[in-house]
Design a binder for these strands. Structure first.
Length: 427
DNA sequence: CCGCGCAACTCCATTAGTTA
DNA sequence: TAACTAATGGAGTTGCGCGG
C-alpha cells in the first residue's frame, strides 16, 4: 500500500539552466530579496560584521570554495585570510539569506544527494545526522548553484500537508511511462491552456519536475489572490503567489496535492492526467474506511495509556454528557505532552462516557514524534459504523508521516489520511 | 425589491513548531 | 532562548438564495 511519498530525491533535474549570478535567478528562482540585500551590503563594514558571525565549519567551507587547502588552526586566522576577498564573499550573503528558515531536514536531504561524502563530513555536527545547514548551502552553491532551487522545492514538501487523491474511473494505463510524458514542454502547454481557460489573467509557471523512484513531482508557482504591495511610495498591484506541488505515483492513478487553492490545483492535476491518458480523468479525495469498533478500541488504549508510540493530549467534543440546555461542548487538553487519559477516566467515572461516543468527538490530538498531531473521525454518510480518519500530516516530516501511517495501520488496523482535501466548488 | 438567514470566505489573534 | 514562520480556530464580513 503506497500512501505516502518519501522524498529521497535521486532525481534528475528537468528544468533549465539560468544564469546563477543573475538578479533573475536570485529574485525569481530562489525568491531572495536581491536588491534589498545588495543594498545592505554596501554599508560600511557590512562584510566584516557578516564574516565575524560565521562559525568554524562555515568559514572552512568558504575557504575551500575559494580554492584554499584545508588547514587546521584558529578560525580567526582563517577569517583574516578571507576578509579581503569581499567580492567573492558577497554572493554568500545571498546564500545565507536563501538558507534562512528552510527546513533543516530538506536541506540535508538535498545536500546528501548532491555533495560528495567528504564535503558532507565537513558540515557534520558530530555523530547523529546533524549538519550545519548554512555550510551545506555554501557547498551546494559552489558545486551546483542552480540546485539551491531544489532546496526551496523540497522545503515545500516538508512543510505542507498533502491531499490524497485517486483517479475516479479506471482508464487503461498508457504504455508510455509517466516520467516520459512529464516533459517540460508538455506540462507547460497544459498550464498555458489552463490559464487561458480561466480567463482571469492569472498565470501558472512550471518551476520544476523531479523524478524519484516511482514518484513524479511537479512544482508550479501560480497567481492566487489579488493583493498590493508597496515599493517606496508606489503601489504595485499583483497576486499573492501560491505553490502547487503535485506528486504523482502509480502511473498517475494517484496524486498527492499540496496548494493553498482548493480548486485550481485539482483542475491542473486533472488536466495533466487527462492529457497523459488521452481520455477525461478526474481525481477524487481518497476515502479509506475505519470502523466504529476499531476507533473505540483505539481510544480505549489511549485512555489507559497502553499505546507504545503516542499519548492522548487533547479531546474536543461537540456535545457532552454534562447537564444544560445547550449541547455543552467540551475541550479537554494538556498543553504540553502529558496524557489526558487519567482525566478522561475521572470524567467518565463522575459524569459519563466520553470515549464511547465516537460520533460526538470533533477531534483529538495525540503526542507522537514529540509533536502534537490532530486526528479527526469523519463520519461516512449513509453508513452507521464507517469513518474516515484524517490527521494533520503537515505537522510531521515525510519520514514521520510514513511511520505514523504504517504504525496506525499495523498496530490498530486503522488507515489514516491527511486532513487536506481538494474538490470543485459547486458553481 | 428588500431583508433575513445560511454558508462560504477572509481576517486576526493565538499557538505551535523551527531555526539560529 | 529569542526571533520568526506557519497553522489554527474563532470572529467578522460578504454573497447569495429565498420568501415576503
Amino acid at each position: 500500500m503506497m500512501d505516502q511519498v518519501l522524498v529521497t530525491a535521486k532525481s534528475r533535474q528537468v528544468i533549465v539552466d539560468v544564469d546563477v549570478s543573475s538578479r533573475e535567478f536570485w529574485t525569481n528562482e530562489l525568491e531572495v530579496a536581491y536588491d534589498q540585500i545588495l543594498e545592505q551590503t554596501t554599508q560600511a563594514g557590512f562584510i566584516e560584521t557578516w564574516l565575524a558571525k560565521k562559525n568554524g565549519r562555515q568559514t572552512e567551507m568558504l575557504r575551500r570554495n575559494m580554492g584554499w587547502e584545508a588547514k587546521p588552526g584558529r578560525v580567526k586566522g582563517k577569517k583574516d585570510e578571507l576578509r579581503p576577498n569581499t567580492d567573492e564573499l558577497l554572493p554568500y550573503v545571498l546564500v545565507q539569506e536563501f538558507a534562512k528558515f528552510k527546513s533543516k531536514l530538506a536541506t540535508i536531504e538535498v545536500a546528501g544527494d548532491l555533495l560528495p561524502p567528504d564535503v558532507m563530513e565537513l558540515c557534520s555536527k558530530g555523530d547523529d545526522d546533524d549538519y550545519d545547514t548554512l555550510a551545506l548551502s555554501f557547498a551546494i552553491f559552489h558545486l551546483k548553484p542552480h540546485e539551491l532551487r531544489r532546496i526551496l522545492h523540497v522545503d515545500k514538501i516538508y512543510k505542507t500537508g498533502f491531499a490524497r487523491m485517486k483517479m475516479k474511473d479506471g482508464p487503461r494505463r498508457p504504455t508510455r511511462p509517466l516520467a516520459d510524458f512529464l516533459a517540460r514542454h508538455n506540462v507547460e502547454d497544459i498550464l498555458r491552456q489552463f490559464d487561458k481557460s480561466k480567463k482571469d489573467g492569472r498565470t501558472s509557471e512550471l518551476k520544476n519536475i523531479l523524478h524519484d523512484g516511482d514518484h513524479d513531482m511537479v512544482f508550479i508557482r501560480r497567481c492566487e489572490r489579488p493583493t498590493l504591495m508597496l515599493q517606496g511610495h508606489t503601489v504595485l498591484h499583483g497576486y499573492r503567489p501560491e505553490w502547487i506541488v503535485l506528486i504523482f505515483f502509480d502511473g498517475a492513478k494517484r496524486v498527492n496535492i499540496s496548494s493553498r487553492s482548493v480548486e485550481a490545483s485539482l483542475e491542473i492535476a486533472n488536466q495533466i492526467a487527462t492529457e497523459y491518458y488521452g481520455t477525461k480523468c478526474e481525481y477524487q479525495n481518497e476515502n479509506e474506511i475505519a470502523y466504529r469498533k476499531q476507533l473505540e478500541r483505539f481510544l480505549d488504549l489511549l485512555k489507559t495509556d497502553r499505546d507504545q508510540q503516542m499519548a492522548w493530549v487533547e479531546l474536543v467534543m461537540g456535545n457532552s454528557p454534562l447537564d444544560g440546555e445547550g449541547e455543552c461542548p467540551i475541550r479537554l487538553r494538556d498543553p504540553k505532552c502529558h496524557s489526558i487519559g487519567p482525566a478522561v477516566r475521572h470524567f467518565e467515572r463522575v459524569v459519563g462516557s466520553l470515549s464511547g461516543n465516537v460520533d460526538a468527538i470533533e477531534s483529538i490530538k495525540v503526542f507522537y514524534a514529540k509533536k502534537r498531531v490532530s486526528l479527526i473521525f469523519e463520519k461516512m454518510e449513509l453508513a452507521e459504523d464507517e469513518f474516515v480518519v484524517r490527521y494533520s500530516d503537515q505537522r510531521l516530516n515525510p519520514k514521520e508521516r510514513l511511520a505514523f501511517e504504517t504504525y496506525m495501520r499495523t498496530a490498530h488496523a486503522i488507515p489514516v489520511l491527511s486532513t487536506e482535501k481538494r474538490f470543485k466548488r459547486p458553481s
